[in-house]
Design a protein around this nucleic acid. Structure first.
Length: 300
DNA sequence: TAACCGTGGAA
DNA sequence: TTTCCAAGGTT
């Protein structure tokens, strides 16, 4: 009789307490899982649920999305935030069709090469869609491992190679068990070992938690700068894109002028949207979502 | 490395 | 009301 491992304890807890999220169902395609992972980047589960359903109902395969316009992808994205993700997801669908015959690849290197897919998302798809053994490290997992193993209150702002190593050492050898453990770590961080008010009373590894043993030392020093939103270019971009998203086809410059009074900042935000490929000019004084209609006539 | 990139809900 | 933060990626 050996002691249960850390991963074993968390996995056991997960099997009994996991939320019933649709992208975790066994019959879900790798494409559907990839879509969920991209939508979940910096975005709460409750907001992703309806968007994910609608997206896959419209574009059940990468090929379906690849054939539609960027403008429609941006519209379907709705108010999930970070609309560049919609653009990247469509580019990703195009790449999957062109490079992989329409099938989401199952090799880490191939996944990493896809637009909008980084270290976390590539590993998440490899593990959750294909059952491979990879450390899947997001903000939840970093926090769980940091607290339970290292005994520190919080992890750093970005995932580092050391985080992957530390997490990999916790994974069971068997691939399917490792994938399950990865999902379990994430769930624990999302539901129990939360950033603000951890529910240590219901934690399956409270007895061995290094942070708990230390008396739950508070974070030391100032954390990262709280990023303001009101008054930033980000907010102005959001307002501008909101108008363009609701419109069909070109929107007169004059109508965009109404969303923000500061001419300089508004122009900068609009230029940024164009630079990012979300918006394009139509003629001299109108703009539209990228690819929303036939190409503007080229003067000869 | 650090700044930038949306949005909305809870504390 | 303000602050925090939510399955990151890109440059």
């Amino acid at each position: 009789m050996t002691e249960p491992t850390f991963a074993g304890l968390v996995s056991r807890w997960y099997e009994r307490n996991a939320r019933d999220l649709p992208w975790r169902h066994p019959d879900v395609s790798p494409w559907a899982i990839l879509v969920s992972e991209v939508m979940l980047q910096q975005t709460p589960v409750v907001r992703v649920l309806p968007a994910w359903q609608a997206w896959l109902a419209r574009w059940p395969t990468p090929a379906a999305l690849a054939q539609d316009t960027p403008a429609e992808a941006i519209r379907m994205w709705g108010r999930l935030g970070y609309p560049r993700r919609a653009l990247r997801l469509r580019e990703c669908a195009v790449a999957v069709v062109e490079r992989h015959g329409g099938q989401v690849p199952d090799h880490l290197e191939q996944l990493l090469a896809l637009p909008g897919v980084g270290t976390y998302t590539a590993r998440a798809v490899a593990a959750f869609a294909y059952g491979q053994r990879h450390p899947v490290v997001d903000t939840n997992v970093r926090r769980v491992v940091c607290r339970a193993i290292a005994g520190e209150p919080d992890a750093g702002p970005a995932t580092r190679p050391a985080d992957l190593v530390a997490t990999e050492e916790l994974l069971p050898v068997e691939p399917a068990s490792a994938a399950l453990a990865s999902a379990a770590f994430m769930e624990l961080g999302a539901v129990v070992c939360t950033a603000r008010s951890p529910r240590c009373g219901v934690c399956p590894v409270e007895a061995t938690c290094a942070w708990r043993a230390s008396g739950q030392v508070a974070p030391d020093g100032p954390t990262r700068r709280p990023q303001r939103y009101a008054g930033t270019d980000r907010q102005v971009r959001g307002l501008l894109l909101g108008v363009l998203r609701e419109a069909t086809g070109p929107v007169p410059h004059q109508r965009l002028d109404q969303v923000w009074s500061d001419d300089v900042q508004r122009a900068r935000a609009l230029a940024g949207l164009v630079t990012d490929g979300l918006v394009e000019p139509v003629g001299e004084n109108a703009f539209r979502l990228i690819g929303d209609g036939p190409p503007a006539p080229v003067p000869t």
